[in-house]
Structures are given as structure tokens and as C-alpha cells.
Simulated assay, not measured.
Amino acid sequence: MTHALTLNNIEVIYDHVFLAIKGVSIEVPQGGMVALLGANGAGKSTTLKSISGLLKSERGEITRGSVQFMGQDIGKLAPQDRVKLGIAQVLEGRRVFEHLTPDENLIAASAVRGGRAEMQRNRDRVYSYFPRLQQRRTAKSGYLSGGEQQMLAIGRALMTQPKLLMLDEPSLGLAPLIVAEIFDILRRINREDGMSILLVEQNAIAALDVVSHGYLIENGRVVMHDKAEVLRDNPDIREAYLGGAEGRDFKDIKHYRRRKRWLA
């Protein structure tokens, strides 16, 4: 199986001192949909930024391992060069230009690629996935609902025609119905465009419903990796993520701690 993305034993250090992720290895198959799960502060966002090249702006650097995209080592490339290769990251927190309309946001994001005809084609495609955005295309983006802003953030990423779409906590702060709608659209984008998708989520229930495989990261290490249905049925994941843990973290669950020793 060809892989769009391969992270091989990545180590990331911030400020030459703090070891944020410790030997993380992940594979996203070409045209595949994979989730990176974990609690807050586990290292999920850092992993994404090591792929998109956004670590440097936060004084982070990869000190070991390699990041390969479509067979090419991209560890030394600037973020904009990674975008040109086909990597797009939707940052956490729905970052859109609030003073611009959805239309203007999409046009601004298309500067990376092609001419006017291509921009219009890409914009029409975004609106076909997100008809709600088309209805609100002339409103100021700051007046959109949280769900609509998230759709716009994804639409902006799609304007760069990515081969790999990475999303950081797209469900954060959204109602379950909106999350289900957005995840359905992501599944459609994956199926219809053959786009590889890496989904970073705390919401394991929603994520494991749409992906084929998942990785569980804790304290900067991958502690589990399996097919989505296997992870969904795993008693530890069920207890800590799928209800029944009453907000407790993985480390509070003895059964999980025991198993983690074996995994290590």
C-alpha cells in the first residue's frame, strides 16, 4: 500500500529544552482516512505542526526521525512549500478572516494556486460540499455560527487543492448534530476526491465513526494503533473515551496502565 504520509520515529523539542513528542510513527495511506486521538496536551497538535512545518514559528524543531510526503522527505521544507506540495492544515479554533465574507475568505486562500478560472472551479467545489456557506456567502464571516466558521476553515484549506488534509480538533465546541454533518462531508471529500485525511480529535466517538484506522497518543508517545472498529471495541478506549470514565484520564485506569507497560 502506498502511503501519502509517513512519520518515522519523530522527536520534537521546544526551546531546545522541552521534549514534546518522543518517537512518534504514523502512516496515512494514499486516499485513506486516519485519526490521531488523545487527551489535551498529549502531543496531537505538535504532531500535525511537524507535518505542516508550523513548528518553527513556535520555537519547536524536529530533532530526530523523518517526515515523508508522497515519498519525499519534507523535514527541511518551509510551510508554504509544503502547501504547494499538497499539504493543508485546518488549525484549531476556526481561524477565518472575520471581517471578510465567506466568498472573500475563499478567494484569499486561493492565492497559492492557478488563475481565476481555477479559483472559481475550486470555489464552486467548496460550495457543493458546503451549501450552507453558499447561502451565507455575502455575510461577514464573524457573524457565521461556529459550525459555519468551521466549514469555512475547511473550505479555505480545500482552495489550495490539497492531497493531504489535516484537521486539528474540528469538533471542538460544536453541537453533536453539526459535528456529524461536518464529519459526513469529510467522508464525502475523502471518497469523491480520493483525498487523504488526518483527523486530530479528542472526540473519539465521532472520529472512529469515519476513519479506517486510529492512533492513540499519550504523553508524546503512540500507545495504541489499530483499525477503527478494534479501537472502538477496546475496553480501555471505551472506558476513557466512549463514556463510563466520568472525565477521568487514561492514567487513572489501572487496566490501561497495565496494558501500557506491555505496549512499551
Rank of each mutant, 00 (worst) to 15 (best):
F130I: 03
Q202N: 03
G115A: 09
D73Y: 08
R123A: 06
A35T: 04
R113I: 05
D252W: 15
A42D: 02
H255E: 15
Q80G: 00
F18W: 13
L263P: 11
I217Y: 01
Q89A: 06
L208V: 04
P170H: 05
A245D: 08
I182V: 05
V223N: 06
T63W: 09
Q135G: 08
L152Y: 03
D168L: 15
G38H: 04
S128R: 11
K49F: 05
V34F: 13
G71E: 04
D249F: 14
R248L: 15
R95K: 14
L165K: 02
G147K: 06
M159V: 05
L144F: 11
F97G: 06
S66T: 14
L263T: 15
V200C: 10
G43D: 08
R132N: 09
M166Q: 05
S196W: 00
Q72V: 09
R259P: 02
Q30D: 12
S52C: 05
K56L: 07
R132E: 09
G53W: 03
F69K: 10
W262D: 15
Y241A: 04
P162L: 05
L172I: 13
N190Q: 12
P131H: 04
V24F: 11
G115I: 04
I74N: 01
E181S: 13
N219Q: 07
Y143H: 09
L77H: 10
I51Y: 03
K254C: 03
K140S: 12
I154G: 00
Q89P: 05
T160S: 15
G41C: 10
S57E: 09
L106H: 10
Q72S: 10
A207P: 00
A175G: 04
L152E: 01
G60K: 00
R221E: 06
L158D: 00
P162N: 06
K84V: 00
I26R: 02
R238V: 13
A39C: 14
S171D: 10
I197G: 01
Y215N: 02
G173A: 13
I21Q: 12
E181M: 15
N203V: 09
R64P: 08
V222P: 06
N234V: 12
G93E: 14
E229K: 07
A4E: 04
V17W: 12
R113K: 09
E192H: 13
E11V: 08
V222L: 11
E246H: 15
M195Y: 08
G60P: 02
G214E: 02
P29F: 09
M224V: 00
H255C: 14
G86R: 03
W262L: 15
L36A: 03
L91S: 11
S57G: 08
Q134S: 13
I154N: 01
A153M: 14
E58K: 11
R94L: 06
K22H: 12
E104D: 14
R232H: 15
V24D: 03
L37R: 08
R257A: 14
R95A: 06
P102M: 10
E192C: 14
A117E: 11
L174Y: 07
M195R: 07
G243S: 15
A4R: 05
V24R: 07
A109G: 08
R258W: 12
E169S: 13
A180K: 14
A264I: 14
I87G: 00
L100P: 12
R259D: 05
R113V: 05
R187D: 02
Y127K: 07
T160L: 13
L55P: 01
L177D: 12
R156M: 10
Q202I: 07
D124T: 03
G43V: 07
V67G: 00
V230H: 15
V90F: 02
L216Q: 11
Q134M: 09
E181R: 14
